[in-house]
Simulated assay, not measured.
Amino acid sequence: MEEAAELGNYLPLSFKSPKEQEYIEFLWDAFETNYTHSKYQFAFLAYHMLTMSFVYFNIWQIKQTEPRDFAMGLIGFGRDIEKSLLEATSPFVFSTVNERSILRFLKLIACDNGKIGTYVKLVDDRNDTAHPNGNIFFSTQAALDTKITEILRVVDEIQAHSKPVIEHCYREFLLQNHDPDERAYPDPADQIREILIHENYLSQKDIEICRGFDIETLATQPGHEHMRELHEVLRTKYGSDDASGAV
């Protein structure tokens, strides 16, 4: 159970609506309840849904940060699906697309076909588990724990591939939000919380990437001193030790 909780560090610190947050909390509750009552097959289903939510949030970040690449990734989808995804206002809109197909977007962050094939296997495992085929694939805690270890390896791999997207997102945030007289929230902490984290569904793992950003690469930009202030507030307020109470 303790290892399984690590997935929470890859999920958003803040959501755009209470409904979205309630959904993620519901999935965690479903996982924990089934896990503690030895209903491991159903615990896996809830954990898989949390994992796919993580994938949706990552694809959303691509859509927000690299819209041209995202549009290119829609090649091959039907016109109605293409329109729906381009106009999406929530990451959960991606759930309307077959999970195997949505994983293709991970090519935009340099996940090759071999890796995506591994990720698709997790979808196949879910499909096998969810159908009434007379099999209990996860009848023991050990079996589920092994699968959770595999899932977390995949999640961490996808997160590593997402690093350039998060760095680009953060760089643009600093460039566009440094002026306290022009931005939405004069207080740096408010601006970080509402505009950076909230709008981009950033996770604690995403924040760790932002905290490691080399602020000196923006040293020649106008307003660099305010960018440095934002960066220092982020580093201080969202250190990994303080993640649970960050937002």
Results as ranks from 00 to 15, higher is better:
Ile215Tyr: 12
Asn98Arg: 11
Pro91Trp: 00
Thr33Trp: 04
Met72Ser: 14
Ala243Trp: 13
Leu7Cys: 05
Tyr170His: 08
Pro91Glu: 00
Met49Glu: 08
Val247His: 03
Lys205Asn: 10
Gln141His: 05
Tyr47Asn: 01
Pro12Ser: 09
Val247Ile: 03
Thr33Phe: 08
Ile207Pro: 03
Ser203Asn: 04
Leu45Asp: 03
Asn200Gln: 05
Gly114Trp: 14
Thr118Ala: 08
Val120Asn: 08
Leu50Ile: 09
Thr89Gly: 14
Ser162Thr: 12
Ile136Ser: 15
Pro12Cys: 09
Arg79Pro: 00
Asn133Lys: 07
Ala219His: 09
Lys121Val: 09
Asn177Cys: 07
Leu106Val: 06
Asn98Phe: 02
Gln21Ala: 08
Glu22Arg: 02
Ser17Tyr: 00
Arg79Tyr: 01
Asp80Ser: 00
Asn58Trp: 01
Glu194His: 12
Ala243Tyr: 11
Ala142Asp: 10
Asn34Asp: 11
Asp190Trp: 05
Tyr119Thr: 10
Asp112Lys: 11
Glu2Arg: 11
Lys19Ser: 10
Arg153Cys: 02
Phe77Pro: 01
Pro188Gln: 04
Ala219Ile: 09
Ser17Asn: 06
Asp206Tyr: 02
Asn133Pro: 02
Thr236Tyr: 13
Thr217Ala: 11
Gly134Pro: 04
Phe54Trp: 06
Asn127Lys: 05
Glu167His: 08
Ala110Cys: 05
Ser14Ala: 13
Asn58Lys: 14
Ala219Gly: 02
Pro186Met: 10
Lys115Tyr: 14
Lys163Met: 11
Arg153Lys: 11
Glu99Phe: 04
Pro164Lys: 02
Ile109Thr: 15
Ile136Gly: 10
Asp179Asn: 14
Ala5Leu: 13
Glu199His: 07
Ala219Trp: 03
Leu13Asn: 02
Asp241Leu: 08
Arg211Val: 06
Ile109Asn: 04
Ile24Ala: 10
Arg235Asp: 07
Asp242Lys: 15
Ala5Pro: 00
Lys121Ser: 11
Ser84Gln: 08
Pro132Thr: 01
Leu218Val: 09
Gln176Glu: 14
Glu6Tyr: 12
Lys16Thr: 08
Leu174Phe: 10
Gly223Tyr: 08
Lys121Ala: 13
Met227Ser: 05
Met52Lys: 02
Thr217Trp: 02
Leu13Ile: 12
His198Asp: 06
Glu32Gln: 05
Thr65Asp: 13
Lys237His: 14
Gln41Tyr: 04
Thr129Leu: 14
Ile116Trp: 12
Ala4Tyr: 05
Ile136Asp: 15
Val93Asn: 03
Ile215Ser: 11
Thr118Trp: 08
Gly245Arg: 06
Ile192Met: 01
Phe44Val: 04
Leu174Asn: 10
Gln41Leu: 06
Ser244Arg: 12
Thr217Glu: 14
